[in-house]
């Protein structure tokens, strides 16, 4: 239904891409904090379970950039049995602070949105 509406807006796909970008970043940081440390493949699976499908080609560049920005720290670890290295991500102190601010901002946005939506319903 929502997809149909988006298709009716000429720039619908672009709008979705823009809003998803910040939203995915927020969700990724939340998931990493929830698991303390997690590697890329596992993260993709957990996002998928949460009905937030993110492609590999999108997630890994995002993780790379957030690591460069100092929000994440990454450590290579060898898996004991299978023997191929995996890169585990965890939040840095700066990442934790940034996530708190992001969550606060997002919650404010949601509240604003809910107020506006409620007011719109009242006018009908």
């Amino acid at each position: 239904m929502l997809g149909t509406v988006f298709n009716m807006i000429p720039s619908g796909e672009n709008w979705k891409t823009q809003i998803r970008k910040g939203y995915i970043e927020l969700c990724v940081l939340l998931l990493i904090r929830a698991h303390t440390r997690i590697y890329g493949f596992d993260l993709i699976e957990k996002l998928s379970v949460s009905e937030l499908a993110v492609k590999e080609g999108t997630l890994y560049p995002l993780l790379s950039r957030m690591t460069t920005d100092g929000l994440l720290s990454a450590n290579w670890e060898m898996e004991a049995v299978k023997g191929h290295p995996r890169k585990f991500y965890s939040l840095t102190r700066a990442g934790n602070r940034a996530l708190d601010e992001m969550v606060g901002e997002f919650e404010r946005m949601v509240r604003t949105f809910e107020r506006l939506a409620q007011a719109e319903k009242g006018t009908k």
Partner: peptide, 8 residues
């Protein structure tokens, strides 16, 4: 990392 993803 990409190779690790595929192997995983």
């Amino acid at each position: 990392e990409i190779k690790s993803h595929v192997l995983s």
